[in-house]
Design a protein around this nucleic acid. Sequence first.
RNA 1: GGAGGAGUAGCUCAAUAGGUAGAGCAACGCCCUUUUAAGGCGUAGGUUCUGGGUUCGAGUCCCAGCUCCUUCACCA
Length: 562
Amino acid sequence: MLEKVQADRQAKLDAIRAMGIDPYGWRYDNVEPIPSILKRHEDFAAGKDANAEEPMPTPARTAGRIVLLRDMGKMIFAHLRDAEGQMQIALRKNALSEANWGLAKLLDLGDVIGVQGPVQATRTGEVTIWAEEITILCKGLLPMPEKFHGLSDIETRTRQRYLDLMTNPDSAARFRKRVRIIEHIRRKLNERNYLEVETPVLQSIYGGAAARPFTTHHNTLHCDLFLRISPELYLKRLLVGGMERVYEFSRNFRNEGIDASHNPEFTLLELYEAYADYNVMMEIAEDVISTAAAPYAEQVGPEADRMEADAARLDAACQSADKAVAAGKVDAEAARHANERRQAEAAELRKTAAVYRQAAELVAKGRVALPYGDTVIDYTTPWRRAKYADLLEAHAGVKIDDVPAVRQKARQLGIAEHKMADAVVINEVFEATAEPTLTQPTFVCDYPAELCPLTRRDPNDPNTALRFELFIAQMEIANAYTELNDPAIQKNTLTQQLHGEGDETMRVMDEDFVTALMHGMPPAGGMGVGIDRVIMLLTNTASIRDVILFPLLKPEVVSGSE
RNA sequence: GGAGGAGUAGCUCAAUAGGUAGAGCAACGCCCUUUUAAGGCGUAGGUUCUGGGUUCGAGUCCCAGCUCCUUCACCA
């Protein structure tokens, strides 16, 4: 079947070649983005250009992929989709050259073409390019996924992301948002005089985090190397060198489990600022994320409207299907099945719309609110700052320095505490009791010092480290320290290993890093921000795999490759 | 690694009790110059994820495996 479609398309491709046309096209200049054409026409039609010289209809030239095709014999309507929009084009036998019309009749869904012609609305009001000339830019040999439902199979959408992007505008829009959010963060940091730097992915000593690394090998150097689990120790070396404000959008690799919020390779923004501390990092985190969220908060209300309208449309489709069944035009069983699906989809839409509506109400009051799953996150600054010890006491009912009580609580929670160091037990209890409550943006401040080998201690309390983690929607979003710059203490904490931290996440001594500190690192604040998770939050996406273009999947087994 | 779910035409999905595997879209042929998921008539299209087993007969039941999803474990 697929072979037949492919053969049909190949035959058309050959026919195009026989006409002396290259079916794979060439450079095509002066292309106007489709949203721009639509906007131009809208402005013109609204009379904003009424005194302009431009004659109606206005000319346009654009290019895109054919995503809808209605061949009516001597006239063909098609929809062209480009990177950010979609519009109708009309191809008419009378309006095109003979060769162009011959080409038009050989077009298929999925082909990429260029079009030129006047823009004018149809009788029913759809803005359309009435083509005077078309150019084939690329012939597709394989069929596109279905035009209405698009591609929904999650595995195919991920493995063949190009199909997801070309058929699901929502998915394409999400990845564009990702790019814009990262641009926004970069701009914000540059405005603060930060330098974007690049540090090694291939490292002979891995550090800066507790995680299992991927290992690889360099052939001519005859040595094993690790893919970085964190850029931290390199960025701090730059502080020593006098680069006072540095950041890196750092792809890190951790050889650990995969789930909805963990991908083996992920993007961590790490930044370090000399003469700052973790309080400065809090301000930066708040500022950068809340201002990134702000433009999307404005769209929440309209999106709720759109979802409710879609749900109403599905209801209407159900009713017309019922009528068709009553009139005996449609198979009742098939209609019932289709209606069940429509109703389920409508119910889902309304549920989601209700959350958007709730967020929109907050936005109307001047707050920066976005939906995430079935809750609303309020990003309005300042964000809550809470002490680790206070949260532990509030949610676990134990004081942080009452170790026997903490251990008893751990046993109640089913944590095998007897082999764990005190600090590890405390953290287990914290994760089980306090973390699930952290839905709204919260800086959890001042961690047990033993857990934080790279963090400076509170001068008034050596058991407390000046560290915060930022939680939003129960996810750990950022992790920041007032950085430790005393080489003697640093060397000491790197050699300690806590019981219960896991054998394979050994702290590794990096002698050169300690040497760097001995040359003097200014006091500094540093932070890591889980960029993929920030994107998840701001795009209301439940799985990290949907915000990474090509997340890791197990390779498909090719038959006969053994 | 544990538990649960899914895998049917290129795509989106059906198949009631174990009894000839269907529909829409896409494709192919014909008609149609303002259509909107265009429409009409017709044609073709299947290793039901893979491999075993039970049975007169398996998409359906059993066993093993593969991939994906959810969840738990793991996870700075």
